[in-house]
Write a protein that binds this DNA or RNA. Structure first.
Lengths: 344, 344
DNA sequence: CATTAGAATGTAATCGTTTACATAGCAGGA
DNA sequence: TCCTGCTATGTAAACGATTACATTCTAATG
């Protein structure tokens, strides 16, 4: 089928060892031989077979990436950044999303034990003991994204959901709102939990009571935000919230939609904030005040750490890093700010 | 390092051939032997080394995906669908984006000649002769997405930009607009060209003159749409367009932004339509009338075709398929339609 | 009981590299 | 001239699977 090292060797009247040495710049080779080999290889469009090479060297130059889903902006940005860095280091990306928890295990296992990758970046919101066990016999280096389970065998990178939630809650409080509602994310979700904690603690720190009726649970979808918003609006006027913190932007956008239908104005009638800083939140009016997640940084760092681990920097194992989040103030919270297209 | 087939064979007191036969369900094996091997393999968490297997079978169970960029919704949806189908067939996805044209070649070549994948799905807006040459010596099957270059060695799947553009233009004309502007995409871009052609032909078919001043060129970014919109607004009132067709939604959103600042109302003051049907276009008010691209279908079909090609269905080679686009009517064109969150 | 077909298993080559080790070639010093 | 110690090259053994072919076992048949 394809031309191989033997063919190159034959045409150059040298042995395959010499060809290999030339191609890998290893060991001494006479300049003239070197030239000849290089030239023939170029002429024949020779490219070493990666399977054979991997089999021999136990390196694949491939990084496995396992994500919970392949759906929104967040993951696209992440993949984009991973690709950039990987490319810079000459690595390829083997990507898989969770089709089910059972399947994640299968994939991780195939990637690791099957020798398909040199290392893995995993983002699994509900990482379980199974995964932990696999990692314990860590065949290959692993970087864990936003996983709260402590794990001494992997590098862990997290986004600071907790402080993000606190800061945006604090911002609402500073606006003078007292009755602040929160639409939580799905229970069991790590990000959702942290944001919820941040909200509660900030409220508490400011001596504000949290009316249980003002705490609703959504599932991060636009639709669930839409309905949660309608429910909150239906409350008695003495209890009705002055502001709502949606655990993510998508749910807040559901509220925007309902508000438009009901002719309710943000922030005059009610203030609204989100979390994530997705693109649409910059386009809608009023601009959605939210918390920015440093996704690119997360992508870049995780890939760089993984590559270092692969290259043998053992001292990194167990390292944990928390990336800070930033408050993005637009208008939905009650602030007036003129932002130009240059900002977006 | 990891347990291999020899170890399994040793523990079972059989030869590696027998183990291989059991694991691949090939050839006759005594049930008792079979059980034993399976059990030991399970106990030892044995997983065949994929490099060795690939080297021997010349199959990688990996599909290469090369995209122009890894940035927006479009590509995320595409990847999502590719992943779904690939997973269904037990294939893995090796993904790379264009870092440069030169690099694309390198990647395609490494994927193909390097034996990293069994086939490739390529989306390269400006596919060049180089790529064509590589494909001509087609080492592995290829599916080309939205590439206009005829190519007898690959399956090609396109999206019908032309008719999409015609239908949305027609819709504007039916609204009674006569002075219709178009903000084109970047020249050289295949999609942009087709949309432009569709627009022109539909205008012509309806006997409408196209004022050259009303034709602007953007680059598909929000910012370029913003400025194009401002320029169109600055025209003499006898020339100023009654409606604008933006070659993609992102540019139309730039117009939304400008309109908000300038207190211009869609569609009362001017009608606006886009192309792509991105998520944000459903959220803004008024909802953006646009053309829907069947991205999922494109992803699904391309992967299914590729897998068939890989499995040897040679008669598919050269097959071309054009996927139709659909007019999505919301309110920015002048229609009044109530859409519920259930629609989104 | 001998014969034989078919099932069960084993042997060894193969896939295309890398690389440890062996060997050949060659220049310079004694 | 003969060593010595380089540099340059070759040989062959991995790497871990698959698989064609050879061999042995089993059981049924005449």
């Amino acid at each position: 089928m394809s031309v191989n090292i033997h063919e190159i060797a034959r045409r150059c009247n040298v042995s395959i060892a010499t060809v290999s040495r030339v191609l890998n710049n290893k060991g001494p080779v006479k300049p003239s031989t070197r030239e000849k080999v290089l030239q023939v290889a170029r002429e024949m469009n020779y490219r070493p077979n990666s399977s054979a090479r991997s089999l021999s060297t136990r390196k694949t130059d491939t990084i496995g990436v396992i994500l919970p889903e392949l759906v929104d902006e967040f993951f696209m940005s992440l993949i984009h950044e991973l690709d950039e860095v990987a490319h810079k280091y000459g690595k390829y990306l083997l990507i898989s999303s969770s089709h089910s928890s059972r399947n994640d295990m299968e994939t991780i296992y195939e990637f690791m034990a099957g020798g398909r990758v040199d290392g893995i970046i995993i983002m699994a919101p509900k990482i379980n003991k199974q995964i932990q066990n696999i990692l314990k016999n860590n065949i290959r280096p692993v970087v864990l994204l936003n996983c709260d389970v402590p794990h001494n065998y992997a590098v862990r990178i997290k986004i600071d959901n907790y402080h993000g939630a606190r800061s945006v809650t604090k911002h609402l409080i500073e606006h003078g709102y007292k009755r602040i509602a929160m639409v939580k994310g799905p229970s069991g979700n790590q990000d959702a939990e942290s944001r919820w904690n941040g909200f509660m603690q900030e409220m508490e720190a400011n001596g504000l009571a949290v009316n249980e009726k003002l705490i609703l649970e959504g599932d991060f979808t636009l639709r669930s935000g839409y309905y949660a918003f309608l429910r909150l609006l239906n409350m008695d006027s003495t209890e009705k919230p002055e502001a709502i913190f949606f655990a993510n932007d998508m749910m807040a956008l559901g509220a925007y939609h309902a508000a438009h239908v009901l002719k309710i104005k943000f922030p005059e009638d009610i203030a609204v904030v989100g979390f994530d800083d997705i693109f649409t939140g910059r386009i809608v009016h009023p601009g959605l005040t939210t918390v920015h997640m440093p996704i690119s940084e997360m992508g870049r760092k995780s890939m760089e750490y993984l590559i270092k681990l692969i290259e043998g920097e053992e001292e990194l194992i167990g390292h944990e890093e928390v990336l800070s989040t930033g408050l993005v103030i637009r208008e939905s919270c009650g602030c007036t700010q003129n932002w130009l297209p240059g900002d977006i």
